[in-house]
Write a protein that binds this DNA or RNA. Structure first.
Lengths: 210, 210
DNA sequence: AATTAAATCCCCCGAACAGGGGATTATCAC
DNA sequence: GTGATAATCCCCTGTTCGGGGGATTTAATT
């Protein structure tokens, strides 16, 4: 028996969900809320295995509710159940700590399948959501293509610059003259097309060179 | 009819896959390769809708093969089909451009389901893979908690610094005296516990303030 | 009414940096 | 063996920065 909580402001949908889950026999609905105001109390009392959470609700919205619950009860898993399939909502839900993301247009049988899958240790999400997550992941983690032909030594020095060190300090660390570091830095500037330490550091981060 | 290519070095498995897909009636296997050496030629000739790609293969490995195909034929979708479920392999596959990631331990019927789901526009992945992707996504995108109590103006100026601008330029841009900018920057240094432009810029990026 | 904080500006001084010019040595490619 | 490149160092000059003092105005908080 998997204990489950529901938070959904649409009464008709909430009751349907409750019936669907209860009748399935594998779930016990331990709370069923119209809004998220009492979510912390209810979670503390019933400690459900998972919570089905709507996003658009009066009062506290679903994403805020996820943050609240995850902060106090990180073991409770939350699955978003919503009509929104825009990247922004998905992104913020995942960041808030949601373990899954299902669209309301899902067929009841598929919903039960997805939940069963989740209890087995997987993240439930429709294919279209998974695609979006993959794409966001890809974008967020874009690697640099150009390395600006920096030599090994230049890269080391650039890294030292990103640690906020002065030429003098960098020179002392590797037993070189400050003038040597200065020469290297000049070359770095040419290669990166910048004209100052801070600009070089900024470019190093923006282009993910370091 | 969905055209599909298979790249898998295990002959028994490859033949089984071929039979499974052909017998289903919805797929036409247009090529079935033991390794990825001729993948570009085969893809060019047959232009399959999707490719099922093993990772561990003699010669070119599956992830490299994904990069090759995606570079020349970005429209062809590739689904990894592998025994590996470590984060590293998943991560590199997604980055290479794979549209899905299925584990070989999947049941044949589920495989057909996942592929059907994919053709409908979704990413096929088992729940456990989806969980991993979500977690990696969360980690990669960790936000900063502390904002170091920077005021709005200070944040603006810090952002300008990350563009490599000098005090003079920043001042000119907003019709202020360079001394004003200097004062603000002094305060920024105190709040960030740094003592130079480049260190401030570095901290701004590292702490994801900007 | 008094206090605080933010934003604006000013001066001084020494240190650090930017850009320009060099020089030498060593290694590697052609 | 000539040329190119990387790495090491030097000098000079002017600019920018960093840290230390200030000051005034405005808005908000108490």
């Amino acid at each position: 028996m998997t204990t489950i909580g529901i938070v959904e402001d649409n009464d008709v949908l909430r009751n349907s969900l409750e019936m669907l889950l209860q009748n399935n026999g594998n779930y016990q609905v331990v709370f069923s809320l119209h809004d998220a105001r009492t979510i912390l109390e209810q979670t503390e009392i019933h400690m459900p295995r998972l919570i089905l959470m709507d996003i658009d609700m009066p009062g506290i919205n679903g994403i805020e509710a996820v943050k609240l619950v995850k902060k106090d009860f990180p073991a409770v898993d939350i699955i978003m159940f919503t009509v929104f399939e825009d990247d922004e909502k998905i992104f913020r839900s995942v960041m808030a700590g949601a373990s899954g993301y299902l669209l309301k247009k899902i067929a009841p049988s598929r919903l039960l399948e997805a939940l069963a899958d989740f209890v087995q240790g997987g993240a439930p999400m429709t294919g279209s959501i998974a695609t979006r997550v993959l794409e966001m992941f890809r974008k967020q983690t874009k690697q640099t293509t150009a390395n600006f032909n920096l030599s090994v030594k230049e890269l080391e020095i650039l890294t030292a610059l990103t640690e906020g060190k002065s030429f003098k300090v960098i020179a002392a660390e590797r037993f070189l003259s400050a003038e040597t570091i200065k020469s290297h830095v000049k070359n770095i500037y040419v290669k990166l097309h910048v004209h100052s330490k801070s600009a070089a550091v900024a470019k190093a981060f923006k282009e993910k060179i370091i």
